[in-house]
Write a protein that binds this DNA or RNA. Sequence first.
DNA 1: AAACTTCTCAACCGCCTATAA
DNA 2: TTTATAGGCGGTTGAGAAGTT
Length: 273
Amino acid sequence: MMDRSFAVRKGCWTDEEDLLLRRCIEKYGEGKWSQVPLRAGLRRCRKSCRLRWLNYLHPNIKRGEFKHDEVDLILRLHKLLGNRWSLIAGRLPGRTGNDIKNFWNTRFSKGKTTNTTTLEGEEVEARNHPNMKNEVIKPRPWTFPKNSPWLLGSLSASSTTPYSSATNAGTTSHSREMLCMTSPILPSNEGSRLELKKHTFDKELEKGTSFSINGCAEDLINSLWDEDLQPMIQVGNDPSLEESNMVWDDDFCLDFNFWDTLVVEGNLFLDAN
DNA sequence: AAACTTCTCAACCGCCTATAA
DNA sequence: TTTATAGGCGGTTGAGAAGTT
């Protein structure tokens, strides 16, 4: 008969277990979850420890009801990204993917009977059309057109350096072959700026020319950035920027192909400053 | 007050991906 | 190149709370 005294515990966590886990994280830091049960003296599996910390014990976790602006953002992000809870959670400080998933499933999943008079606008729409087909943008291979400035060498090597796939872009730029690469597309070096310009064939249009974006991306951008989309997007944290400028953190930028959402007449010309 | 139903949300499960050996 | 391991994610479950009859 197997000795079950070391069997992994399941179910709800006790206060004592929480204390052990908290002390362990304080002492050794986050990560190395496979070592946590032993270090903490817990009869829990690594995944259970990780989940308990990230969804419940982490000091930054925000409790309580979702505020209206949070709900609004969840709706807009869900419209754009689908059930990618961790990504949505990344835009809501203090909220976890699990929180948002639970919130969505209890409020908007099919068959729920919450009084719709307490909902408004898009919430009602989401409730009434829980399975409404949205254009969900997901990371996917991205193909440069043959006349892309990337392939024609319009971009200097240094300006492409921040791109994680810059090596690929560089090596292929001379062959003028169609190039496939996966997201990310946006540069990730902190503080760098990209200036977007309309570029039609050889003629570069005036700086600041606006460009159009397709529906759901526009919706998202408007939700994150109150002002009209400006041709300047900043990546990383630059305290010198005015508050109104949208700051995209790397994770978000890297998660979907932002450029695919831009509908620009001609080519996009990227000028890294 | 009791029985039953519905809701909430913490936790588990299985799968996928990245990385190391 | 293959295999093992770890981290991470979304779907789902189920216990307990809250509401209703």
